[in-house]
Amino acid sequence: MKIIIYVYDGMTMLDAIGPYEVLRYMNDAEVFFVGEKRGEIKADSGFIDFNAKYSIDDIHDADILIIPGSPVAFLKEMKNEKVLSWIRQLDKQTKWTTSVCTGSIILAATGLLSGLKATSHWKIIDLLSDFDAIPTRERVVEQGKYITAAGVSSGVDMALYLTNKIAGDLETKAIQLTIEYDPQPMFNSGNYSSSDKAVIQVANKKLSKDAKKGLGLLGLLKNSKYILKLIK
C-alpha cells in the first residue's frame, strides 16, 4: 500500500503526522513524504522543520494521496500549477485521494472535487464553493474515492475511517488502540456548530493572528478575497 503525503512550506504539521501515525500501522504500508522539491519543509508554527526525501518528480503513482492543510500557505499551493497537475496525474492512479483541513482547497483547485461535497476548516470552508465543490460541515466527508476531513485533528479520524474501508473493523480498532486514540476533551468546544459565540470570537482572533504571521513569512499580498477571509 503506497501512501503519499504531500508536504509544503507553511503546512500544519498535525495535518500530515496525524494520518501518518494511523496509516503507517496498516499491513504492507509504505509512506512517502513528498514535496515539490526535496529538502527542508518549514511548518506553519516556525518551530519545526521537516525533511522531504522525495520530490513530485520522483513519484508517479500511489494507492493513497493525502494533502495536508495550512493556515495560509494553501493559498500558494492552490495556484501552483505544477503541483496541481501532479495531483491530477497521481489521482488517475490512486484508490483514495484525501485531504485534511485546508488541503481540501488545494484539492478542489485541481477541479477534482467539482460537484462533490467536501469539508474543510470551519473558518474557510465556504471557499470550496469557488471551485464548484459543495461545502459540507461534517468531520469526514466521503464522495467516491475522495475523502476530505475538517480542521487539523480530524485527520486522525479520516485516517481511521479510511483504514476501516481498506482493512476492516478489527485492524482499525487495533490501530486505534496502538496509538491510544481515546479522545476525552475537557470541553465540548471542538465543533463550530456546538461552540458558543464568545468561543468562536476568541478562536477567530487566534486564527487571524496566525494568518497574519504566515502572510509575512510567505510574502503574500494582502489584497485578495481569500486573504481577507483569513485575517478578518
Score class of each variant (00 low, 15 high):
173 K>I: 12
102 T>F: 00
5 I>N: 08
79 K>Q: 11
16 A>F: 03
58 D>I: 03
24 R>D: 04
103 G>V: 06
229 K>I: 12
197 K>W: 08
68 P>C: 10
139 R>V: 13
12 T>D: 11
176 Q>K: 14
34 V>D: 12
86 W>T: 10
186 M>I: 09
226 Y>C: 05
23 L>H: 05
217 L>S: 01
103 G>A: 12
5 I>C: 11
15 D>Q: 11
133 A>P: 03
103 G>W: 07
50 F>E: 08
179 I>W: 04
209 K>N: 13
180 E>I: 07
12 T>S: 12
171 E>V: 07
232 K>H: 14
28 D>M: 04
183 P>Y: 07
153 S>A: 15
228 L>Q: 14
48 I>C: 09
95 K>D: 09
35 G>P: 01
196 D>H: 14
149 A>W: 08
77 E>K: 15
225 K>V: 11
117 K>G: 11
205 K>G: 12
64 I>H: 09
83 V>D: 03
50 F>A: 07
28 D>G: 06
197 K>T: 12
78 M>S: 02
217 L>W: 03
37 K>G: 14
111 G>A: 09
168 G>M: 02
18 G>V: 13
78 M>Y: 02
96 W>F: 15
97 T>F: 02
62 A>E: 04
88 R>I: 08
153 S>C: 14
11 M>L: 15
73 A>V: 00
179 I>D: 05
224 S>L: 06
174 A>C: 02
162 L>P: 05
101 C>Y: 05
144 G>D: 06
124 I>P: 02
179 I>R: 12
61 D>R: 01
156 V>D: 00
212 K>L: 14
36 E>M: 12
166 I>P: 01
158 M>Q: 12
155 G>R: 10
205 K>F: 05
222 K>T: 12
132 D>F: 07
30 E>I: 11
118 A>T: 05
7 V>D: 10
138 E>L: 13
176 Q>W: 09
144 G>E: 07
219 G>V: 01
49 D>F: 07
15 D>W: 09
8 Y>I: 02
107 L>S: 07
39 G>W: 08
205 K>N: 13
179 I>M: 10
76 K>F: 01
208 S>A: 15
49 D>T: 14
123 K>L: 11
173 K>R: 03
159 A>N: 06
151 G>P: 04
173 K>C: 04
159 A>F: 06
122 W>T: 10
100 V>W: 11
4 I>W: 04
44 D>P: 01
75 L>A: 04
178 T>E: 09
188 N>W: 05
87 I>T: 12
148 T>G: 13
49 D>G: 09
68 P>D: 11
117 K>Q: 13
98 T>F: 03
52 A>Q: 07
103 G>Y: 09
58 D>H: 02
213 K>S: 08
5 I>W: 03
42 K>P: 01
